[in-house]
Nucleic acid binder design. Structure first.
Lengths: 244, 244
DNA sequence: AAGAAAAATTAACCTAGATTAACTTTTAAC
DNA sequence: GTTAAAAGTTAATCTAGGTTAATTTTTCTT
């Protein structure tokens, strides 16, 4: 007997992400096929890996709370950080194409993820769910394409500003900002590996940005000091960030 | 009365892409809901735009033959080339998220595209189709993420070699190579705008690659002269390129 | 609270690739 | 087949960001 996930007994009932498209699709399926009790939620401590590159992992996760970073270490030891996964976003879908994960997922802060069992099976009976999966994939695609644009053609300063603005807006969509501040667990080395810079140059540039009164990172807290100036600097269009 | 798309009368019947996942899903739906005659195929001459950035376009295309390039011009006039769309690949799904196209699609050679009408409606009744759409999105995502890795952390030479190897493998999957050669319509300026380099430096680097006996571009034909050396140079793993 | 490890910072120097400016070859148009 | 425009080529100079190396600060451990 399955309990409807929308009922107060359901684990999803009080989840702040329940209105985002993918969760919404899961919960509001016409039938009772989706059982919120079947969602195994799991807590990962900071610095714990959800999975490693090369793992044979076939699970789809939704990040309920926390901050997960996707990165890959290449043969020559260099590390590429792909992107951050923020609350309400999906991870692990890539493995349905490759049998093995091409990157590792690490929790940067204590995080809670929901493992969605048998997503393919659910999609088979719920086309709307499959479409929201496609939609989530397309959104991630867009984020990544935007990164590519802003990273391959821009200066170090612009790269950093772009990254900051994007994370800020994604968190603000989830109401996870405090005015112009966000909790920011990325180390300078993470920023460097994400943007293709050296930690030394990231450090230099962050200081310059602070001196110019644009933004500041202090004790894992990032504060935007001059929002308009930052948007102007990188032609940032917040509206391009669709909600999912 | 709809004619089953798999029948010899169907436009798809003799399409070389019919076995790729998305087309396969369209054609092999249990029902007769998908009518291959409903597919409007359209020819675009070289240099013609399929759509422009900013267009309000809600159509999903499959590229039947040719070569389409996705690019965007930013406020300051710089152009970013996102990627090439090759035969059998999908384009236009991005617009289901944004109402407007964030980039332009231009045919680099004479191209034929199939416009899939009412894809959302079809997905509603055919979950398998929605899943293959999600799968295609995830594949494109992976291509783009791979680009990101290989572009943001690598030298000009490595960037170019990576791009070449990837295009070569994608075309080879479609049997569109001639031994180690492919038809290559990208101009040096396109390569530069794709990789975040200047045309001058692309030129220099291409000459160096030719002098080193690695690869050669001549009259829109690209020839890989030393496949193994190229793969070694960028740690290229062809198997990472899933078929879709 | 002390010690060790991780992260951030600073400075000196160096190189890959940008910039500027011609010039040549190829392609397209009439 | 001529001409104009586009694409490709070459060289000289310059700079953003990399490299190396050392120091300081912060964060974990016990």
């Amino acid at each position: 007997m399955s309990i409807h996930a929308n009922s107060p007994e359901g684990f999803c009932y009080q989840c702040p992400n329940r209105h985002f498209r993918f969760c919404h699709s899961l919960l509001n399926s016409g039938s009772d096929e989706f059982d919120a009790y079947a969602v195994k939620n799991k807590t990962f401590a900071a610095k714990q890996f959800l999975y490693h590159q090369g793992d044979w992992n076939q699970e789809l996760f939704v990040l309920r709370e926390g901050w997960v970073m996707l990165s890959r270490v290449s043969e020559d030891g260099k590390r590429q950080v792909f992107r951050s996964v923020l609350p309400g976003e999906i991870l692990g879908f890539q493995q349905y194409l490759h049998e093995r994960a091409i990157y590792s997922a690490i929790a940067l802060v204590d995080s809670v993820v929901c493992k969605i069992p048998n997503i393919i099976g659910l999609c088979t009976t719920q086309p709307e769910l499959a479409l929201s999966l496609a939609s989530a994939a397309a959104r991630d695609m867009m984020l990544t394409e935007r990164y590519l644009t802003h990273i391959s053609h821009r200066s170090a300063r612009e790269r950093i500003v772009f990254m900051v603005l994007e994370l800020y807006h994604r968190l603000r969509q989830r109401l996870l900002n405090k005015h112009y501040s966000i909790h920011f667990p990325l180390k300078q080395e993470d920023i460097a590996d994400m943007l293709g810079l050296t930690t030394i140059h990231v450090n230099r540039t962050l200081h310059a940005l602070k001196d110019d009164g644009l933004l500041e990172i202090h004790k894992h807290e990032l504060t935007i000091l001059d929002y308009d100036a930052l948007c102007l600097l990188v032609e940032y269009e917040p509206e391009a960030l669709v909600t999912n």
